[in-house]
Design a protein around this nucleic acid. Structure first.
Lengths: 197, 197
DNA sequence: TATTATTTATACGAATAACGTATAAATCGA
DNA sequence: TCGATTTATACGTTATTCGTATAAATAATA
């Protein structure tokens, strides 16, 4: 292994923060609280992270990297496109539902600065997806008449629907809403695999 | 019924607060948050409660009243003392574990003003218990050589043990610790009913 | 409709809590 | 013992929350 391992104290901070964020959401948790759980002084915290926002970015990045690793396997093998999409959806669902609604809502609504970070992540995800789509187009698994750039624009439009509170309130939680959007993106009006049983 | 019912908005506030307190503990929840969940303006909140502390007192009082009602049945029937104590312990355990550790800890440690209220409640409970003991003494179910006043003093001494963090940390949670104290109070070193199975 | 009582929305100063930093003491490893 | 790291503490600054005042909006009553 070439990757030098994370310092002990830093791992403790990250783990403590992750647990607290999952339980209470992002906003309710204070830096001092994280330090207490992690058995670390405040100074040590600020040694590794400039502030709480950077910590949550780090957490998300870590989570995304993990998903990336799994996604990487998807891009190079020869499974059918339909199955790949299904696996991707499952991945996303797991990743989001694991951290709970409070987490996501806090993250998106309450800390505006992080919205940019989220958008960037979103863009990255889309590019990755588009890459997969292009590959699928070349293999003839996806109709060639759809342009990846169009797909990307549609995604941006649809994610803006999250601001429509009345619409979101129809769903039990934010995760469910996000899943609906993704389903529509990848399947359009076609029946979902799950609908067949 | 002679009791005029609680105003709708007040009930909404109480229910919203109860839910939030159970999920996040007392300290993390703000008045505005309660109002939002209860679909009530801040002004209406302050119409019914002078502040958050009074609201939690109200909640506790309500909970205590409920327990009182159940305790009332205990005092007048003819079940053996041993069984009564066991029922009381169960009552307390249910009442405390239902609201979670975070709740109790916040309540006792973080808001000093409420400590007095809690102590008063504790005194009330003890008096009630002493009454039961006296009755049991008269019936010959409890040794007459123990003075209720002594019992009361012992209780106060033992509850002070809660400040001994090292001691409390031996137990998985605060509830368990409280149960241990109660068990000792009522059974001394005698084996508990549960120990027999 | 006119009138009265409630409830709400908004803004505000005051009080409190959290942030992020500086410093010196304490702890740890070599 | 030395040097580096971590901690405890205090502190000024910023952000949040509190609790209240006010006027508009809504509901109720006549």
């Amino acid at each position: 292994m070439k990757t030098k391992k994370e310092p002990k104290k830093k791992t403790a901070i990250v783990q403590a923060a992750n647990g607290l964020f999952k339980q209470f959401g992002f906003k309710k948790v204070t830096v001092e609280e994280i330090c207490e759980i992690a058995c670390v002084s405040k100074m040590t915290f600020y040694k590794y992270f400039p502030n709480k926002n950077e910590l949550i970015k780090y957490l998300w990045q870590k989570m995304i990297d993990d998903s990336w690793a799994k996604l990487g396997e998807l891009e190079n093998n020869e499974t059918p496109f339909q199955d790949k999409i299904h696996m991707i959806l499952k991945l996303k669902e797991e990743a989001t539902s694991a951290m709970g609604d409070q987490y996501i809502r806090d993250y998106l609504n309450i800390v505006p600065e992080l919205q940019d970070f989220y958008n960037q992540v979103l863009a990255d995800v889309m590019q990755r997806f588009i890459k997969i789509i292009k590959h699928a187009q070349e293999k003839g698994e996806v109709r060639k008449t759809i342009r990846p750039e169009f797909f990307f624009a549609v995604v941006n439009q649809l994610t803006a629907l999250a601001n429509n509170e009345q619409l979101v309130s129809i769903y039990n939680n934010y995760t469910e809403f996000a899943l609906e959007i993704n389903n529509f993106l990848y399947y359009g009006l076609m029946p979902l695999p799950e609908d067949n049983k």
